[in-house]
């Protein structure tokens, strides 16, 4: 392991808070506003870290420990994610599972801390969170498995390394479907429109935001930072897959990767500006659709010849 191996992870850790900023700017542009600065989240984080905190009397140590642990989890997951030509900090066969399960642990803690407050709104959000993720997880796994089937590797690093422009030539249709699925999962997992609206202020309709209502100070900073890291992590999956079609290598690829991440954020912003939030009852249907699409992609990958 050399210093070079840390580049992918470090870039994520440093640049992740940029993504919400880009998204917000995009949305503001669509709305004709000038909007927040792109670096707004960095300011927020620093400000929050300097503040004191207010805790609900109902809460226990679970509530206090969850943000720190959740941040650790998502950072741990990030260690296995390459950034195009920049290799992952660590990689081994099956790290896909570990990454997904680190995210699972983070969700576990978030949900528990929401329930810890005893608020019925937070309970509502927690319930929705686990419901949607129970469907999003299979979709993600099958989508990734489709890639694994083609590339013959069981780790993220190997996965993307194994996907060459040649493979894209052969499996292009399947990969396009996989991209769609991954994008859906990305939206769901990061609580974006059309599943959730991060900007709403009506507790009844929120999912992720309502679960963290009671956090303040450094805890809220951890939570927000972790959310942006998760956005980066899942975005990286999409971008890595898309980048593999281009077949560029070297530092150019890494720069391309960063650019693509920003592009992804813009796309999200466009989606959020042009779409309405789905009715909560329709979200499961969309997710089942995602699973079905993923299975279709898996079958396609078997049918198409290399």
């Amino acid at each position: 392991m050399t210093a070079f191996h840390a580049v992918a992870m470090l870039s994520g850790l440093v640049l992740a808070p940029l993504l919400p900023g880009v998204i917000n700017r995009t949305k503001a542009a669509f709305a004709g506003r000038s909007g927040q600065p792109v670096l707004q989240l960095y300011h927020d984080l620093i400000k929050l870290l300097r503040k004191g905190a207010v805790y609900s009397r109902t809460t226990t140590w679970v509530f206090r420990a969850a943000p720190a642990a959740g941040l650790a989890c998502v950072s741990g997951a990030l260690a296995f994610m390459p950034a195009a030509s920049a290799p992952a900090l660590a990689s081994f066969g099956g790290d896909i599972v570990l990454v997904v399960y680190f995210l699972g642990l983070m969700r576990f803690l978030t949900v528990l801390s929401a329930l810890d407050t005893g608020s019925s709104f937070e309970g509502m959000g927690a319930s929705r969170e686990v419901q949607f993720s129970a469907l999003a997880e299979p979709a993600l796994f099958v989508a990734v498995a489709t890639l694994a089937r083609v590339s013959g590797s069981e780790s993220f690093a190997g996965l993307f390394a194994g996907l060459t422009p040649a493979a894209w030539m052969a499996y292009g249709p399947a990969f396009m479907v996989v991209l769609t699925v991954l994008f859906l999962v990305f939206l769901v997992e990061n609580a974006r429109i059309p599943v959730d609206d991060p900007n709403t202020h009506l507790e009844l309709t929120m999912i992720h935001e309502v679960m963290i209502l009671d956090y303040s100070g450094p805890d809220l900073a951890f939570v927000l930072y972790a959310a942006s890291l998760k956005l980066w992590l899942l975005g990286a999956v999409i971008v890595n897959l898309a980048m593999s079609a281009a077949g560029v290598t070297g530092s150019l690829a890494f720069v391309g990767f960063l650019a693509a991440m920003m592009l992804l954020a813009i796309v999200v912003g466009v989606v959020e500006s042009t779409m309405a939030r789905l009715s909560l009852l329709k979200v499961p249907r969309m997710l089942v659709g995602a699973v079905a699409l993923a299975l279709l992609a898996f079958a396609l990958a078997g049918r198409l010849s290399p």
């Binding site: 870290l49 300097r50 503040k51 004191g52 905190a53 207010v54 805790y55 609900s56 009397r57 109902t58 809460t59 206090r64 420990a65 943000p67 720190a68 642990a69 941040l71 650790a72 407050t117 005893g118 608020s119 937070e122 209502l213 009671d214 100070g217 450094p218 805890d219 951890f222």
Partner: peptide, 21 residues
């Protein structure tokens, strides 16, 4: 480590308790 960091940050600030929002 992060938890300790949080403690360290909060040790110099005001920590209040209230009812759940």
């Amino acid at each position: 480590a992060l938890y300790l960091l949080r403690n360290a940050l909060l040790s110099r600030r005001r920590v209040d308790s209230a009812v759940t929002w």
